[in-house]
């Protein structure tokens, strides 16, 4: 898609608003919600998929599906968990498709993780990203939600479509796998 300037966007927005299509949120509410959640969601998608370009695509798709979903949200937390649930389902769909028609090899996948600013690539960060690629997608999702976002077991369950009671055990197993991978990379603690 070509690069758009802010003036282009404003003009297109004006044209679009003349014949708005029914989405499940008005623009002002969406912008406020987006500003609160987009960075967190992008970080989640980027670390769970291990691919920043894919994360950008999935970010757009997640918000689109969120806007089209006909749901009554009880609270901000519910709305946010629904957003993460859509994102997690998209990630899972992506992994399922890739398993059927593998287009990116494991080495390329790790390579895409390295395509980031050098300042960000601390040794520990690189080790973690490498280890994360060797985990199952669900384990990555669990660990990121629990320890990067500080989500409660209930929030994780809602975001991933799992039972709250099973989170503790799943998290324990995911943590164990990641810890052993990191220790294999020389992480003492």
């Amino acid at each position: 898609m070509r690069n758009l300037t802010l003036a282009d966007i404003e003009q297109l927005r004006a044209e679009t608003s003349q014949s708005d299509v029914a989405l499940e949120m008005d623009e002002e509410a969406f912008r406020a919600f987006y500003d609160r959640t987009a960075r967190i969601l992008r970080a989640y998608l980027s670390r769970v998929t291990g691919d920043s370009h894919l994360a950008d695509d999935l970010l757009q798709e997640t918000y689109y599906r969120f806007l089209r979903a006909r749901s009554d949200y009880e609270s901000e937390a519910h709305r946010r968990n629904s957003l993460f649930r859509i994102a997690s389902n998209l990630v899972r769909d992506h992994h399922r498709r890739r398993r059927i028609t593998p287009v990116v090899s494991a080495a390329e996948h790790e390579g895409s993780l390295a395509d980031r600013p050098a300042a960000v690539q601390t040794e520990r960060g690189a080790d973690l990203r490498r280890a994360m690629t060797r985990l199952r997608p669900r384990d990555r999702e669990l660990l990121w939600l629990a320890y990067a976002q500080g989500s409660s077991h209930r929030e994780i369950a809602e975001s991933l479509g799992l039972k709250t009671g099973s989170i503790k055990l799943l998290l324990f197993r995911a943590r164990r796998r990641l810890a052993s991978l990191l220790r294999g990379n020389g992480h003492a603690n």
Binding site: E27, F30, D56
Partner: peptide, 23 residues
């Protein structure tokens, strides 16, 4: 390790503008 990675994630390029996503 995950907390460090989260901090690194905040330094990455900004997300697209909300108006663009809405449009």
């Amino acid at each position: 390790a995950i907390a460090d990675e989260r901090d690194a994630a905040w330094e990455e390029p900004a997300v697209p503008a909300s108006s663009l996503v809405w449009w």
